[in-house]
Write a protein that binds this DNA or RNA. Structure first.
Lengths: 248, 248
DNA sequence: GCACATATTTGAACACGTTCAACAAAGTTC
DNA sequence: GAACTTTGTTGAACGTGTTCAAATATGTGC
């Protein structure tokens, strides 16, 4: 009854080393085939054959073709968290450079895989699809991604109301940047890099401006609006304890 | 050689009245079936059968299943332009109410068809897909939609730099609102209505604030950023002559 | 009306993503 | 190691969107 070995991602079922090998074999082969042939033209049959597995086997590990790319994207997020942590540990950076590190490291990881990103956005308009980028099914991913941006904010001091929206706002911005990135046909997507730098410069400046008294009422209205719209952080979003601030 | 009758949308091929009837029959039936069964579960075969046409016939008029919904969306846009024009003609409205009319009339039209909207966003992440909401293939649609918002701006006076970004900015906002609308499960999507009103109030206020001297440099940076990113109006976007302003 | 061209219609055929019942291998219990 | 359970593998079969060659209807020039 009791299985040794590792548990899979959801801690539900045991997974033998051999199965892990098959799975990662299929995954890595799939990504290679997707990159070569493109998402559309690469077929599940071709992909399974190239991996030396059967069609059914591929479906044993991944519920759908898109799910394979989601699995890839899970890896990307783990790598993103790793790289940002490394950058923050290396030396002391100011807010803007920490945010730059967060955005650029993500782009670095994805640089060669812009075509794969299209899958991320495919179900955006379908609230109930398990892979909708905005839906319940991807909440965990979203929160992980927000955590990375929270880490980049570090222990910087912000008014509480602003702090509350920064994580979802940065996450949303980052999604927009990814979309721009996909469409960016400039050499090595230098345009996206410039856009990121420009936007972050602006944001840091605006965060300072937001404290001006003329803008207080505007700031209040914006926050009330977002709150009413339910666009503030989802209630179960785990704030990173190390960076949590108490009310002054 | 010379055909009488009407020309189709692209002025390339003649179209007999009978063909028009078949087409509109297929279109209206398809929409009905889509609304009843949902986009996924409604099959092209079922749809063709219900319309009393053959499968091939459906594909003669519409290159794909999604294209049928695009055709519906073309109608929506025509209706949108019509309704806004009517609202503007009826009585003199201030800027905020004109913008409110523009946004709410669109939502009115789409109120019962939120599920159909998902198709609008399906190819957002695929720059080269003809139905990508941000791609070249849908440029004409985008410009028509922007024209509606330009009409709502009317002859209101804005600094030139601001005027330049208003059309694409309002269009982008409206796309965001549609996405929110799709996800909004409040009764009759009242939440979306409130969000629209709140955002528009804010925008009108911000447009006034933007003239403050403290904000001039920020305003300049934002515009420079957008220009560099190529997010200003696409060069061939036809400004609506009646509302075009000359340099002061 | 006839020959021809063009527009429209048809359904079989195709390719693909996905499902599933059956089978094989590995692990567990005794 | 035998019976049994669980995990992993297989490819045929299904349903779907789409394509296409062939058939039919409609229009044109004479």
């Amino acid at each position: 009854m009791i299985q040794l070995y590792y548990l899979n991602m959801f801690n539900t079922t045991a997974t033998s080393p051999k199965a892990q090998l098959t799975r990662s074999n299929i995954l890595s082969t799939a990504l290679r085939v997707f990159r070569e042939r493109g998402l559309e033209s690469a077929t599940m049959r071709e992909l399974a054959a190239t991996a030396g597995a059967s069609l059914g086997s591929a479906y044993y590990y991944f519920p759908s073709k898109e799910a394979i790319i989601q699995a890839y994207y899970d890896d990307v997020q783990a790598e993103h968290a790793r790289r940002l942590a490394a950058a923050l540990a290396e030396k002391h950076l100011d807010l803007k450079d920490r945010l730059r590190a967060a955005f650029h490291s993500k782009l670095d990881i994805l640089q060669g895989d812009r075509k794969l990103l299209s899958a991320l956005f495919r179900y955006t308009g379908e609230p109930h699809h398990p892979l909708s980028a905005l839906g319940d099914g991807t909440r965990k991913n979203r929160h992980q991604s927000m955590s990375v941006f929270l880490a980049a904010l570090g222990d910087e001091r912000f008014p509480d109301d602003i702090r509350a929206i920064l994580a979802p706002a940065l996450w949303a911005l980052h999604m927009g940047v990814l979309l721009y990135f996909i469409y960016d046909d400039s050499p090595e997507q230098q345009r996206t890099r410039r856009l990121v730098d420009g936007v972050l410069t602006l944001i840091v400046r605006l965060l300072a401006l937001a404290k001006l008294s003329v803008l207080k009422p505007v700031r209040g209205s914006i926050l009330a609006l977002l709150r009413d719209a339910g666009l503030l952080p989802e209630p179960d979003f785990p704030q990173v304890p190390a960076f949590q601030e108490s009310q002054p």
